[in-house]
Amino acid sequence: MNIKFVARKILASFLTLLAITFVNFAIFRMVPGDPIRMMFKDPRVSIEDIEAMKVKYGLDKPMMGQYINYMKNLAKGELGISFWQKKPVGKVIAERIPRTLGLIGLSLFLAVVIGTILGAVAGWKGGSKTDSAIMGISMTLYSVPSFAFGILLMLAFAYHFAIFPLGGIETPASGFTGIRKIFDIARHMVLPSFSIVLWYIGQYILITRSSMKDVLSQPYIVTARAKGVRERRILTRHALRNAFLPLITITGVNIAFMTGGIIEAETVFSWPGLGRLFYDAVMKRDYPLLQGCFLVFAVAVVILNFAVDLLYTRIDPRVRINGEAVNEG
């Protein structure tokens, strides 16, 4: 791997992160009204108390000073105190991350597996009825917002047929441990992950189908077919392998976009992960928490993009060193 390329990417990612911290900082200074006053539910709060709270959150200083302060705290890993949970934002978020990663992991896995298989079938049978059926379904799925999916799934499988729980991550106050607990969580995961999967699956179908079609029209496949190589062997040895590359890119991009699906699904099913936390922070106008969540989402996306870039160069040596081809592919 080219060191110059990697260094360049690292620098770019770092600059982006820096800019993100600035945007993150600035947005929350644009809030109408007085965010500090919102922290107090009691209307009789005195001006002194408000001022004291401003000092505590460093909001009494001029903007530049506030930003420097913010960056200093960030460097120390401090994201402030949540207005609403009264705990350090970092702690609140850290607790939620594994739950969200679990949900993303399962959804992505299901989407890739099911999507690739269906896409491969569609591409292989290009032009047939199977193809158009799969295409039609996937485009329809792609058009349904995940929150709407979530609602429909919930109404169907948690209410009318109460097979799955209405939401949450575990049965409240169950006292389950070990394998029971794992099964309990798995059961709570089914509906939220499917509401995400059904949306992303469309992309995987489209992408696998088109790369499958590309590959099938390549001369070497035609040759292989002419030589009488078994169909399944062509499928697995040549076609799928070539479809693999765009899959990695789209997965990277998808994780970035998945932040959206995660927020919707976690909100509908009150899955206590980052997405629901973000939604609650918005609803309760908990600005430090909102800022923290946004930062986590943004940093995750930057890092993922960086990782995808690296992976891509590793797999496909044709990628130009300055990385242009990756983004414009």
């Binding site: 099911i114 298989i117 097979i163 799955f164 049965t171 169950s174 006292g175 389950f176 029971r180 099964f183 309990d184 798995a186 059961r187 089914v190």
Partner: peptide, 24 residues
């Protein structure tokens, strides 16, 4: 795929559901 999904669904439901009742 259909069979796998069915099995996952069914087993988690049955297992967790049953456990819940006996525990409480």
């Amino acid at each position: 795929i259909a069979a796998a999904l069915f099995i996952i669904t069914f087993s988690t439901t049955a297992f967790a559901g049953g456990a819940q009742e006996s525990g409480a």
